[in-house]
C-alpha cells in the first residue's frame, strides 16, 4: 500500500539536500507569520504556489483541493466573529463585522493554504528516509529518528492490517455501513482490539530482530547515506535567510503588512 505523497519527478527541488528543504520550509512558515494583510499574504501564497508548480506537485495538491478550499472558507467565516477592528461594515445584535476582521480572515485563509502547499512541496519532493537523514544530520538523536522512520514504515503495514481486520469482522456479520457516528464509535472496539494486539505482538519480534542486528540505542553508528550540502543548497539557504530578515524588518520596524495589530 502506498500512502506516501512523494512524487518521483527529479525537479530542482528533488535534488536539494533535505536539510535545505526542511529549513527552507520552516523559513516559509515564519515569513507567513510576519504578515496578516491580504495583499502581502497573496504575494507569499502565489510565490509558494509557483514553487509548488516548479516542483510538479500539482497532482498532490489536487488531492488536497477540498481541504484547501474549506480552509479558506472556514477562516473567512470564523475569524470575523472572534476578532474586532475599527471600521464597522455590518452589525446585527451582538454580532459585528468589521473591515479589519474580514481582511484578517481572508489573509488567514491564504496563510493556511500556504502552510499546506509549503508542507506539500517538502513531502512530494523528499523521500521519508531523506527527511529522517536530514533530521539526524541536523542533530536529532538517532533513537528518536529511528522510532520516527520505523513508524513511517509501519503505517502502511498497519493500515493494511486494519483493512484485513475490517474484512474479518464484516464477514462475521459486523455492519459498518451505517452512517451514524455514535454507533460507529461502538463498532470500533471489535476493530480496535485486534488492531492493538496484532500491532503490539510485533513489538517483541521487532525488538529482538533489532538487537540481533547489533542495534544499541546509546552507541555511535555510521550513516550509510550521507546527505551532502552543495553550492546551490548554500545559495538557496542564504537567499531564504536574507528574505526572512527583510520580512522581519518590515514587520517589526516598518510595521508593514498588518491589518490586525497585536496578532501574528
Amino acid at each position: 500500500m502506498n500512502l506516501s505523497l512523494y512524487q518521483d519527478k527529479g525537479t530542482w527541488l528533488h535534488n536539494l539536500d533535505p536539510r535545505t528543504k526542511l529549513i527552507g520550509v520552516a523559513i516559509v512558515f515564519i515569513i507567513c507569520l510576519c504578515f496578516n494583510s491580504p495583499i502581502y499574504m497573496a504575494i507569499i501564497a502565489f510565490s509558494v504556489f509557483a514553487i509548488a508548480l516548479s516542483a510538479r506537485a500539482q497532482k498532490a495538491l489536487w488531492t488536497l483541493r477540498y481541504i484547501l478550499l474549506l480552509l479558506i472558507v472556514f477562516s473567512v467565516i470564523l475569524w470575523p466573529f472572534f476578532t474586532t477592528g475599527k471600521t464597522l461594515i455590518w452589525s446585527w445584535g451582538f454580532l459585528r463585522l468589521t473591515k479589519e476582521s474580514l481582511f484578517y480572515g481572508i489573509a488567514m485563509g491564504m496563510r493556511l493554504s500556504t502552510f499546506v502547499i509549503a508542507g506539500l512541496i517538502l513531502l512530494s519532493t523528499t523521500k521519508n528516509e531523506d527527511i529522517t537523514n536530514g533530521l539526524i544530520k541536523m542533530g536529532m538523536p538517532y533513537p528518536l529518528a529511528f522510532a520516527f522512520s520505523t513508524a513511517l514504515r509501519l503505517v502502511p503495514t498497519f493500515v493494511g492490517a486494519g483493512a484485513t481486520i475490517v474484512q474479518a469482522q464484516v464477514s462475521r456479520g459486523l455492519d459498518l455501513e451505517s452512517k451514524n457516528i455514535l454507533s460507529r464509535f461502538g463498532k470500533f472496539i471489535p476493530l480496535a482490539v485486534p488492531m492493538f494486539i496484532t500491532a503490539i505482538r510485533y513489538t517483541n519480534r521487532l525488538s529482538m530482530a533489532l538487537e540481533s542486528r547489533g542495534f544499541s540505542p546509546e552507541s555511535q553508528r555510521t550513516l550509510y547515506y550521507e546527505p551532502v550540502m552543495k553550492i546551490k543548497d548554500w545559495l538557496i539557504l542564504s537567499f531564504m535567510l536574507i528574505l526572512l530578515i527583510i520580512c522581519l524588518y518590515m514587520r517589526i520596524f516598518l510595521n508593514l503588512g498588518v491589518v490586525m495589530p497585536g496578532r501574528l
Binding site: P141, L154, V155, G162
Partner: peptide
C-alpha cells in the same frame, strides 16, 4: 526510555497505530 530498545520500538509501534487510525 530512549536507552531501551523495546521502548523505542514501542514508540514506533504506537505511533504507527495512532497514525494509521488517524489516516483511516
Amino acid at each position: 526510555m530512549w536507552k531501551n530498545t523495546r521502548m523505542i520500538v514501542l514508540v514506533a509501534v504506537s505511533a504507527a497505530i495512532y497514525a494509521a487510525a488517524l489516516i483511516a
